[in-house]
Design a protein around this nucleic acid. Sequence first.
DNA 1: GTGGTCTAGACCACC
DNA 2: GTGGTCTAGACCACG
Lengths: 132, 132, 132, 132
Amino acid sequence: MFNIDATSSTPIYEQIIDGVKEAIIKGLIEPGEKLPSVRELARMMTINPNTIQKAYQELERQKVTVTVRGKGTFVSEDYKPRKDEEKMEELRELFKKGIIDAYYMGIDKEELLKIIKELISELEGFDKDDRG
Amino acid sequence: MFNIDATSSTPIYEQIIDGVKEAIIKGLIEPGEKLPSVRELARMMTINPNTIQKAYQELERQKVTVTVRGKGTFVSEDYKPRKDEEKMEELRELFKKGIIDAYYMGIDKEELLKIIKELISELEGFDKDDRG
Amino acid sequence: MFNIDATSSTPIYEQIIDGVKEAIIKGLIEPGEKLPSVRELARMMTINPNTIQKAYQELERQKVTVTVRGKGTFVSEDYKPRKDEEKMEELRELFKKGIIDAYYMGIDKEELLKIIKELISELEGFDKDDRG
Amino acid sequence: MFNIDATSSTPIYEQIIDGVKEAIIKGLIEPGEKLPSVRELARMMTINPNTIQKAYQELERQKVTVTVRGKGTFVSEDYKPRKDEEKMEELRELFKKGIIDAYYMGIDKEELLKIIKELISELEGFDKDDRG
DNA sequence: GTGGTCTAGACCACC
DNA sequence: GTGGTCTAGACCACG
């Protein structure tokens, strides 16, 4: 489903969260669909089950998934996007850092916007209205 | 010159690095200009000198600054931007994460691009040719 | 694994970096193999853990090692040598200094080349193709 | 006579020492010849006179030069090369470091020896017998 | 005065 | 257990 880089500075559990979200946006996993169980995914990716568990808990906290006791973890069917000012500020900081890095790599404004637009296109469904 | 959030998950020394780079891009510090000394900045921001030191060393490693023995740390006058494929990939990952987060906050493509363009404008000089 | 001279003018962390690199070249540590943990090495050599940490971070920055979160620091399996002109110039300066010093010690050309060839031989594997 | 890089990690006074020695080896300054006075050299290179003074003192300590009170500093006419075991060991360490660095830059044995031989040739007089 | 190194000891996130 | 960050306080070389 997605790749994990154990040597990356982003924690594994965070890579899993991002991977699941990306898979949902791309439509690889549909709303209502079941995610692999913690143990199953841990085995598939040879990762410590505790790490998967932590990722799943965070996904549920963010209401991206819901857990049904005894059944498993499912992609939310009624995800309601929310933007509080705090998260917006974090997002701006993240992009600002990206722009600064781009500047120091010698990437100009047009090239940068092109890269970003490409990334948006790759994440199919991003510009759709029917978000589940 | 810039604000430090001690409670943030991004390390203080990294916030300092980003802050200095941002100040340079915005033209608040000019190429050739002297940065505050390690001790001085430490006093100004009530941060341990070792933390400032770590930030300054990383800035020098990235060739953003040069240090002259016994004189201090100065903004490089001949910074040459470099983009290797590895750094490009990291940049793409950073922006991809931002786009995914934006999606989950209910921000649509147009709004996102508007935010990014605003951020670029705020960083004056980004679309100039005379990068220091 | 290697000796540290606390009285030397070369910083301890740099001696550690050189020692690790030398051990790798000599084949005493193989690609993929785990280095002693920061604390362990600190205990073994009665050196402050922060000093070891600084050495390990520099080794990782140079891509000589990779660190896996929660697991430890390992010798890179896919090290790709790089020679930019700047590093080449530094290398030339270093050897030039050595040659000048040798001259002032009364060592002639043949003797100097003999010494250098011996040093190369001691570092087993230097003339092999399978660099890790 | 030679270039000084204030941003280099090698101290300025050491760069001066090396520069003088190199100039002597190359024959740019002959045995018995007078070096510029401390003040004169300081003015020429816009360097603090104390720094020049320190370099000259060290050159005299190494018996590379002799100072005649009221006359100035002169290149020794009867320099007797000496190799004690301590200095030999330092020299070996220096070359070992260079070889390790070369290895990590992907330079092979033949290429390295070629570079070293070139450097020796550039320092004219190195393979002569009539060392003054 | 400047930056560079080192120690001691603490806290944290991650696996 | 692992590495990563931070503080406090010390000493040093350099200009």
